[in-house]
């Protein structure tokens, strides 16, 4: 059902955890539908210096969260905003059709975290 890559990211997820004093945090999904993804960013200048995640959800939810953190580390915010849910799924070698909609939200969580970062910066100014 899942590709080897999905199973690899599910079994050995990259960047699990929280960032203390993260300057951008994004959360999508809800417990009712069985998926919650939270992404923590440490942004310095315009670059994502560190990123971590916490996810409640199925194998695809965990794997996409892990994958997106790997994809954005060291990228600029503009580059990160260009990553789509579909690109994350593709990087994992694809997801089962049923999972494309319900559990493929990691890029949304990332974008929410970037939005949160921008909002926090504006408040500071």
């Amino acid at each position: 059902m899942y590709t080897e890559k999905v199973m690899d990211h599910f079994t050995n997820p990259r960047n699990v955890g929280e960032i203390e004093n993260a300057n951008g945090v994004g959360e999508v999904g809800n417990a009712k539908c069985g998926d919650i993804m939270r992404i923590y960013l440490d942004v310095e200048g315009d670059v994502i210096k560190d990123v971590k995640f916490k996810t409640f959800g199925c194998g695809a939810a965990v794997a996409t969260s892990s994958m997106v953190t790997e994809m954005v580390k060291g990228k600029t915010l503009d580059e990160a905003l260009e990553i789509s849910n579909a690109a994350v799924a593709e990087a994992l070698g694809g997801l089962p059709p049923a999972k494309m909609h319900c559990s493929n939200l990691a890029a949304d969580a990332l974008h929410a975290a970037i939005k949160d970062y921008h909002e926090k910066q504006e408040k500071k100014e």
């Binding site: 069985g34 199925c58 194998g59 319900c102």
Partner: peptide, 20 residues
């Protein structure tokens, strides 16, 4: 489903009532 996948990797077959 995460539980089932993890159990399966250890050779344990079960089932779940999750949406997935």
């Amino acid at each position: 489903e995460s539980l089932l996948l993890s159990l399966d990797m250890l050779g344990i077959a079960a089932s779940s009532g999750s949406a997935c």
